[in-house]
Every structure is written in structure tokens, then in C-alpha cells.
Design a protein around this nucleic acid. Structure first.
Lengths: 114, 114
DNA sequence: CCGAGTGTTCGATGGATATCTTACAGTCCC
DNA sequence: GGGACTGTAAGATATCCATCGAACACTCGG
């Protein structure tokens, strides 16, 4: 298999979804969760590819955290890339905005913590 | 008690919430439900105060329906008024739009049924 | 090669909530 | 007043999903 660096087993590459093929209901459900809102906000305040999954200050274990990122990936809001031992993230602002105009702004603008 | 028309028991007037005092999370949770999305869309295509609760084509019993309207009222998206034996509805478009810009449009514009 | 660090997967658990059934409260019309 | 109609309330059930613990996979540095 002509794949990547020689000599190695690799972690399964994260599967990404195009926001364009995501339903409104799915997007809203994904985003209607306090932990995920917190992740999105924190991510929005950081530069792309600078935040690893474990670097977020959320009150859940790493298993749940992994699940949350999976959900966010599943609606095309977050993109992930493996960088050595860790998995770094970025918000797919433009693509998501194109499919769900205003939704991301709503999450980031609203001044409440919940 | 000096309350309303004389001689009469009355149905409890529906309690309304100002969208201004609703959290983003609550609004998103309320709106992230297939039945409620359907209600909102159907309501949006009708003139104000013309649709009674029972007049919506949703696949749930009337008890569940009553619950859904209660949720929508609770986030300030729907206003209700008693009109004889039935309770008629209207969308609080402007107020909701002011608090959650773009959210209602998102629900109405997206061309998918789910 | 081993150990520390990072993240995923699996199974189980608990809590929230959407739903139904039944019973009740008003309203209107005869 | 009786009966049809409309909606709410309360209790029971069921389903979904967020969370955790434990085991595993991969990366990197000694």
C-alpha cells in the first residue's frame, strides 16, 4: 500500500464530513450540548492546528472528549489532523458558514456561558 | 380575587418567556427536534393566530404535542392565545430573531425534511 | 525495547426526555 | 344541562445519549 511514511502502522485517519451533506437537525443536535459549545468557543479563540484534543478545559474524561470531537467532525464543524502523538484541530469556519449561515456566529457571539 | 371575567373558571393562561432571557443552549436544544422543527415550519407558512395546536400534521399524540408547544413557548419562539375552546399560535419572529439572529431563517430555509 | 503521553474503542451505566394512556378542565352548541 | 371538541396534567414506559472505566493502538524519547 503506497501510504505515507515507511515502516509503519498508522492511526486510522480521522473521517471528515462535508457540512454540505449534513442535515439541519443533525447540525443543531451536535451543537446543542454544553461541552461541545465550550469546545467550539475555545477552539474559535485559538489559531488553526494549534490545539490538541487534550488541551481543552472541559469537565469530562478523555473518552467522552473523544466522542464529542467525533460528533463535531461528523457535522463538518471540526477538522482534525494527526501530528505526532497528538491530534490537532481547526474550525471549518467557511464551509460551515456556507451551509449553516449565522449558526457559528450565534455560538460565539452569545455572551452566556451555558 | 379580581381576576378576569366574572362567574368563571378559566383555563390557565399560557406562560410566555421573553427570548431575551433564554440561553443559546436552551434555544438550540428546543429547536433540535424533528417534530418541533416541523411545527415551526408549518407555523411559519401560516398567518398569525390562524393555527390551533391540533391543526398540525405531526405524527404524535396530543399530549406530546402539548408538550412540544410548551417547549417552544419556553424559549420564546411561539406565542399562544386562547380563542374559545382552542389555543391558537403565532411565531414570535422579530423577538426571536433579535435574540438569535439567523436561527429561525436556518430552520425555514434549509430544504431538507429532517 | 520500554515507558510516558495521547487518543480511540468497547461495554456498561445513568439521566434526560419524547411518547403514550388516562383522567381532567374548559368552551361551545343544542 | 348534556355532549362533542380541544387542550393540559400526571404517571409510566422507553429510547437516546453523555459519561465513565478499562483495554488497546500509536508516537516519541530514553
Amino acid at each position: 500500500m503506497a501510504n505515507q511514511a515507511p515502516g509503519g502502522g498508522h492511526r486510522a485517519a480521522p473521517v471528515h464530513t462535508d457540512p454540505e451533506e449534513v442535515s439541519v437537525l443533525a447540525a443543531l443536535s451536535a451543537v446543542a450540548d454544553p461541552v461541545r459549545i465550550q469546545l467550539i468557543r475555545e477552539l474559535a479563540h485559538s489559531a488553526d492546528w494549534t490545539r490538541s484534543c487534550g488541551s481543552f478545559d472541559v469537565p469530562v474524561g478523555k473518552a467522552a472528549l473523544s466522542h464529542h470531537f467525533s460528533v463535531l467532525r461528523g457535522v463538518g464543524l471540526v477538522e482534525q489532523r494527526d501530528e505526532g502523538p497528538r491530534r490537532v484541530n481547526r474550525l471549518r469556519r467557511e464551509e460551515f458558514e456556507a451551509r449553516f449561515p449565522g449558526l457559528l456566529d450565534l455560538l460565539l457571539r452569545a455572551g452566556d456561558t451555558d
